[in-house]
Amino acid sequence: MQWKAAAAVVPLLFWAVQSLAQPAGLDAFRRPDTVPFPENAPYDRGIATLGKMLFFDPRLSGAQNISCSSCHNPSFGWETPVPKAIGAADNPVHRHAPTILNAAWITPLFWDGRAASLEEQAVGPITAPDEMNASFEDITARLTAVTEYKAWFERLFPGQGIRKETILTALATYQRTIVSGVAGFDRWVSGDDAAVPEAAKRGFALFTGRANCVSCHSGWMFTDNKMHDIGLPASDLGSGGVSPQDPAGYFRFKTPGLRNIALRAPYMHDGSLPSLPAVLRHYADGGAAGIERQTDIEGFAANEGDIADLIAFLETLTDNETNVPTPILPAN
């Protein structure tokens, strides 16, 4: 199966999933066969390659000591295995680093939904003092001094060269190619009944039934791309704290997709839940104790077997065979 953009084939190395007799009720979770690229920034292999180099290049940080990949590490589901990622000043940032896996389908972006596009999103962490602490003026000058980068930008962006807009286009183009690979669950969706264990099938039935996880974690990415209050104790106002503040959005955060979720501990916007059992218990309990506000979760009865089955299902969403090699960066 090839993945296609609106006007070009995206050269990602996914293997075909043979279409067999499909288990009932799974079609809503079938992987798409195209990657959505905006009309004003269609897929271009060279631009995506350049964007990957920039994504892994510490030259995009003020002190040249961290890169985008420092907080979005492919080995950890494009997150980091700590509650709060460490910024350029060697201090924890405000929130847990969200995954950028399947970013082409995520809208809006950030935990609080304040960015409408990947191009807009990239500006935030690059320029935030507690994150990468850089300016595009300095980045442009730094990249222009690198002969190979100058040649790449002049060839790929004729008449524009290295500037804030082309840097953001390259980064966003690469990030739209970061797509989760085929997992056991996908083979099950396509009709291979032996692709997942029986415990995972029971877990899926719970997920879509009594536990009602699917009310927020729907579709092939397992997210509704909406904001929800899931009953965490916090002073962080979430989407309601975005200027201008909106009390209706207080404590609401973006529902993350669940692809490769087993690789992405700790969990939640604040990294407060260390493991999948802790997450599932949080939901089963209807949120943290002592939360007096009305939340979006109701809880459900779950014994240890139910929790084990749900985890078995979630583990089938992990792609264990996709490798993301680190690019060779141009020398100064």
Rank of each mutant, 00 (worst) to 15 (best):
T318I: 04
M268N: 12
L20C: 07
T140W: 00
A199Q: 15
S69D: 12
A331T: 14
T255H: 02
S180I: 03
E198S: 14
A170Y: 02
K254E: 06
L109H: 07
P325A: 07
D193N: 01
E79H: 01
A172L: 05
E120I: 08
R176I: 08
P158F: 04
S117F: 00
R163P: 00
W78V: 06
L329M: 04
L317V: 02
T208I: 12
I261T: 14
T144A: 13
A116F: 04
P23F: 13
H72I: 01
N212D: 14
P36T: 09
F29R: 04
A172S: 15
F253L: 08
D90C: 02
A308W: 02
Q22R: 15
E165M: 09
S67H: 09
G290R: 10
F153T: 06
R45F: 11
T34C: 02
A97Y: 09
P327N: 11
N332W: 11
G62N: 08
N102H: 09
D246C: 13
G287T: 03
L50A: 10
D246S: 15
D224M: 12
Q160S: 14
A170C: 07
D270H: 02
T318C: 02
S190A: 13
A116G: 14
S275H: 06
A16H: 09
G77P: 05
G62M: 10
T295P: 08
E321D: 13
V196Q: 05
G209Q: 11
A211R: 04
A145D: 13
S272M: 10
P266E: 07
A48Q: 07
V189Y: 02
A103S: 15
I66T: 04
V242D: 06
G191F: 00
G241L: 07
A288G: 13
L13S: 15
K4G: 01
I291S: 09
L329N: 06
K226I: 02
F29E: 06
S243A: 14
A24E: 15
D236R: 02
S61A: 15
S180Q: 12
Q18T: 15
I167N: 08
P330M: 09
I66R: 13
A141H: 02
D285T: 11
E79Q: 13
I167G: 01
V189L: 07
A262N: 00
K201S: 06
G181D: 09
N332D: 13
N260I: 06
A278C: 07
I66A: 05
W188A: 05
G77I: 09
E39Y: 06
L143P: 04
C216G: 10
D112Q: 09
N73C: 03
F300N: 10
